[in-house]
Amino acid sequence: MSIDEELRYELRQAAESMHCPPHLDERVRQSYQHYLNEKRGKSPMKKRLIAGVIAVAILIPSAVFASSYLADDIFGSSEAIEQRGGSQEAYQEIEGMLQTAKAKLTEVEFKEFKESFKQLMQLKLKITDENGIKHEEKLTEEEQRQWRELGSKLAPYFEKIQGNEKQ
C-alpha cells in the first residue's frame, strides 16, 4: 500500500470513531433559533445593543467637549465672562491655569480647588458689571465673609500651581 492509500485508510478509520456529541445538536439548534429571532428582529439583545450604540454616539461628543474645556465647568461657557467685559483670551488664560492645576495637583486637591474656585468666580461675576468694573459693595456681608474665606482657602493652591510653574 502506498503512503497515499495508507493515509486515506487511516484517516477514514479514525473518522469513523469520531462522533459529534449529541449535546452539540441541541446547542447548534439553539444558535439557529437565536439566528431566526435576530433575523425577525425580535431579539431584545439586539434592540438593546442598538439603543446602547445610539446613546454612546450621543454621549461621546458632549463628553469630549465637556472634558476639553475645564473652564466651561466653572463658567458654563466663555459667554458668561464676555458679557462682563472679559475676553476670549482671558478665558483661555483661566483655562490654561486650570489645566496646569489639574496636572500639578492630586485628584482630590484639584476637585476641592475647582469647587472653591468656581464659588469665587461666581461671586466675582456677580460684582462685575458689563464694562468689567468691580463693585464689591454689591456683596452681602455673608458673601463678603465667603469671599475672604475662599481667598485664603485657595491661596495655598495658587502657590502650588504657580510655584511649580517657575521650577
Binding site: 495508507e6 493515509l7 487511516e10 484517516l11 478509520q13 479514525a14 469513523e16 470513531s17 469520531m18 462522533h19
Partner: peptide
C-alpha cells in the same frame, strides 16, 4: 475518543 488515544500511544500513521 478511544481511537485517538490509542493512535497517540502506538505512534501509528494517524
Amino acid at each position: 475518543d478511544k481511537a485517538v488515544l490509542q493512535s497517540e500511544m502506538q505512534h501509528d500513521l494517524f
